[in-house]
Every structure is written in structure tokens, then in C-alpha cells.
Amino acid sequence: MLDTIATVASNTEIAPGYKLLTLNFNQAIHARAGQFAMLKAHDAFEPLLRRALAIYQVGGATQLSFLYQVMGRGTQALALLKPGGRVDALIPLGNGWAEFFDNQSAEKNPSSLAPIERAIVVAGGIGSASVLMWCEELRQKNIATQIFFGAASARVAQGCGLADFRALNMPLTLTTDDGSLGERGFVTAPLERFLRDGGNQQAAIYTCGPWVMMKRVAEIAEPFKLPCFASLEAPMGCGFGVCVGCVVAMKDADPKSYGAYKRVCTDGSIFPAERIQWEVAAMTH
């Protein structure tokens, strides 16, 4: 973990409301797929808190990109950054997807029943930012991978990096809520069909997206007894474990005991879905 000031190489619009921020660091960052950073425009006093963004792409040892949706004050301040601008960055943070892949990690996380022969990646909306690098890594590992990519509309799909996912040349099923591109409806519908039609052999599911989507993915995976891992979102105060603001409720702990809540930033952001008490939403969207 490093607290540093990075320099903006570029900050380009991918689709209306979605931007790709590429940062140059003054030293090498050893980032793993699924990890994130806490970022803030260096010269912006307001808002105070840094924002969590997944590491989207690596452009060399000292260059990383972030794909983000321009929403409130923090991401609006990031959207104003120009090349040469400065960004406060705490990086890299979180556990990353690889922790839930091999035998070794299976000891720490009993639900990652290795060997995993196939992977299913379910990305919803800007949750895509957390899984692009993981899809690439799965391909390098020669793991047969099926991608499910859901977005609200064609514009959002574009903004969430659809072109980069297509460029991977991996099997990809696309849905949009309004039917403007791909299948109409939620991404969980084709996922369920796929599993029923036998796509579930020795597979692990990796998902990142809106809370309700991940909750539904976990429900779908359950009867198939598939290991399912979700990268969670929670409002973050610090990103490195000290505010205890970013918690999620754990299913396997007594609600009155110390372990009832875990921090998304340092205990996650990725958790086995079966451990999460999905009814207690960390985010209200």
C-alpha cells in the first residue's frame, strides 16, 4: 500500500457520463486483478474523502487506468482533471480475484473448491471495471470463461468498457435493461439459463455489479453448489481499514459478536458470496 501523488496521462470520455482516467506513478505499482485505489483530485478541497475505483487496466509498471461513472461530487472532480493534473492515490488496496482461484487460497477460503476448470464472470454496470483484468488473467491461465455483461442501455454498455471486453475475444453474453443492445432484460436471466443448460461443471462464478444483481447471482449459484465470489461496494471513509465504516454483514457470524461485520476495504473487497448476509445492504442503490 502506497500513498502517493500520481499524474494524469489522460482522462477521456468513453461514452456520455463515463470516463477513462490513466495515471502515471513515480514508482512501480504491483497491482492484482480486482484490487482498487482510493483517489481524489489533489487540488480539490471538497469533497474531502477519496473515492474507491477499481484498477481497470495496467499500461506498464508505472501506468494504470481507471474506468468510472461520473456521479456525485467526487467523481465530478475527477472528471475535470486534465493531462498533467495531480491525483492523491492510495494504492493498491483489497484482496483481488486470484485469492479465490487456486488450491492454496482454498485453504483460506473453504468455498473456493479447487480445481476450477471453468469460470463465469458476471459484470453489471460499472462493476465491469473490476473484472476486465481478471478475464484477461483467466484467459492466460487457459480457463474456459464465459462472460455475462449487463448494462442499463447501449450507451451504458459502451461506457462500461464493452469494446475492451469484446477485444478479449472470449465468449460474451450481453444484456441491456432496455433492449437497446444484446438481449433485453437483466444479466441474471442468461446466466440462469446457462447454468441450467449444463454450463456449471467445475465452474466458479466471479461477479461485480450492483448489490441487488450480486445478491441474485448468489441465489442462482446456490442450488448448483458453485463457488461464487463477489466484489462488494460500500461507502468508504478511508480504504485501509481504520474507519470501520465500509462493513458488510456476515451470514456465518453471530450478529451480536465481533465478527458480525467485515470491512469491504481490507477484509475484501472480494468475499465468497455464501458468507454475505445479502439482506443487509451495504449500499442503497
Partner: peptide, 20 residues
């Protein structure tokens, strides 16, 4: 102690509210 049910923090102007 387990702490409170989330959401526990929210940013405000010039500060934040917490109920950890």
C-alpha cells in the same frame, strides 16, 4: 463489540457523519 448495522458513514460538506 459488533458495531452498528450499515450504512455507517456518509460524507457531508466539509466533513462526514458516522455511526460506527
Amino acid at each position: 463489540l459488533p458495531g452498528n448495522i450499515p450504512a455507517r458513514i456518509v460524507e457531508t460538506h466539509g466533513g462526514m457523519l458516522n455511526a460506527i
